[in-house]
Simulated scan of single mutants.
Amino acid sequence: MTRRQELLLGVLGAVLAFGACEAVSRAGLVRRSYLPPASDVLARAAQLAGDRAFLDGVGATLRAWALGLGLACAIAVPLGLLLGAVPLLDAALRAIVEFLRPLPSVALIPLVSLLLGSGTTAEVTLIAYASLWPVLFNTVYGLAETDPLAKDTLRTFGFGRLAVLLRVELPGTAPFIAAGVRISAAVALILAVASEILSGFGQGLGIFIAQAETATDGTRDVLAGVVWAGTLGLVINGVLVGAERRLFRWAHETPPARRQPGPERQEART
């Protein structure tokens, strides 16, 4: 399936979902206070694009997202390379990593807020913790999948451990790291909005959603905020996918299928 076909199918799916929500609300199957028409929600979302205070909140959310994701990558990539290169260290820390990884980041919000307050520092810390794991495990996995023949060849020619890491292991692991960053970007955005919603005060897209939830007839604003959050996630993922395909085009190329011998070739062999 080509990228153009994927785009057309995605647009078709969005149009069908929009039509279904619009029809359900207009037909009165669900009260409009619970599910406003999709056209009203999109109109409100478009209206928010001209609201300076709202855009400042979105900017605050994106800043926390970028800081948390950047901090996670700065920790996860070197740590993943270290764990992948030193099996003894990986075995020693495996139990700790497996204990910390399943902990839901949202459940840590009260503890982090108690230790760091409810400002940007706490939000960035939660984002970094949640988005660290996909990058870390992808780095370890990518390092293990590096071509051993290429590494042995460099060692045969007298290259040291650092040269092997920079010339073979890091380039071979880079596509896996990029995939981990793309996954972590979505996780980071979820934590950025969720932590703001649960904190209930400050500035950000999650704050707008939380305040709209408590307002009279605020369902439309809540859904408009959700539309903005989903759109941000879609744009971020699209940018990262495009960058990943451009930078690591060779990693996405499908090797040509091995040609099966035809009847005339099988006869020639016999």
Rank of each mutant, 00 (worst) to 15 (best):
Leu240Gly: 03
Glu244Tyr: 06
Ser184Cys: 04
Val30Asn: 11
Gly172Met: 15
Arg249Gln: 15
His252Val: 10
Leu111Val: 15
Trp65Ser: 05
Leu191Ser: 10
Leu149Glu: 15
Thr173Gly: 11
Leu42His: 04
Gly10Ile: 00
Leu191Lys: 06
Thr146Ile: 15
Arg249Tyr: 12
Phe201Thr: 08
Phe157Pro: 13
Arg94Lys: 14
Asp90Leu: 05
Leu189His: 03
Arg167Trp: 02
Lys151Ala: 14
Ala210Val: 06
Ala74Tyr: 03
Phe54Val: 12
Arg167Pro: 12
Val24Ser: 02
Leu111Arg: 05
Pro37Val: 13
Ala215Cys: 04
Met1Trp: 00
Asp152Ser: 14
Leu189Phe: 05
Asp152Asn: 15
Leu8Pro: 12
Glu253Tyr: 09
Leu7Ile: 07
Gly225Glu: 02
Glu213Val: 10
Thr216Ala: 15
Pro36Asn: 03
Arg4Glu: 04
Leu35Asp: 07
Glu264Ser: 12
Thr156His: 11
Thr125Glu: 04
Thr146Asn: 10
Ala45Asp: 05
Gln266Met: 14
Leu103Phe: 08
Glu22Thr: 08
Ala163Leu: 13
Ala64Thr: 06
Ala215Glu: 11
Ala60Gln: 05
Pro102Ile: 10
Val241His: 04
Gly119Leu: 06
Leu114Tyr: 12
Glu264Arg: 12
Tyr34Gln: 11
Pro134Arg: 08
Gly13Ala: 10
Ala128Pro: 01
Leu232Lys: 10
Arg101Ala: 02
Ile209Thr: 05
Gly230Ile: 04
Ile209Arg: 04
Gly13His: 04
Leu9Asp: 07
Arg4Pro: 01
Gly80Met: 09
Ala64Gln: 01
Pro263Asn: 12
Ala188Lys: 07
Ala243Arg: 04
Ala95Thr: 11
Ile207Ala: 06
Thr156Pro: 07
Ser33Gly: 12
Leu89Gln: 07
Ala107Asn: 13
Ala178Trp: 10
Ala49Val: 13
Arg63Tyr: 00
Ala174Tyr: 09
Leu81Lys: 05
Leu234Gln: 09
Ser113Trp: 15
Ala188Asn: 05
Glu6Met: 05
Ala20Trp: 11
Thr125Met: 01
Asn237Phe: 03
Gly206Tyr: 00
Leu71Pro: 00
Leu16Thr: 04
Phe137Ala: 04
Phe137Asp: 00
Ala178Pro: 11
Arg63Cys: 00
Ala72Trp: 03
Leu8Thr: 02
Ala107Leu: 14
Ile109Arg: 07
Leu114Val: 10
Ala66Pro: 03
Gly206Pro: 04
Pro78Phe: 01
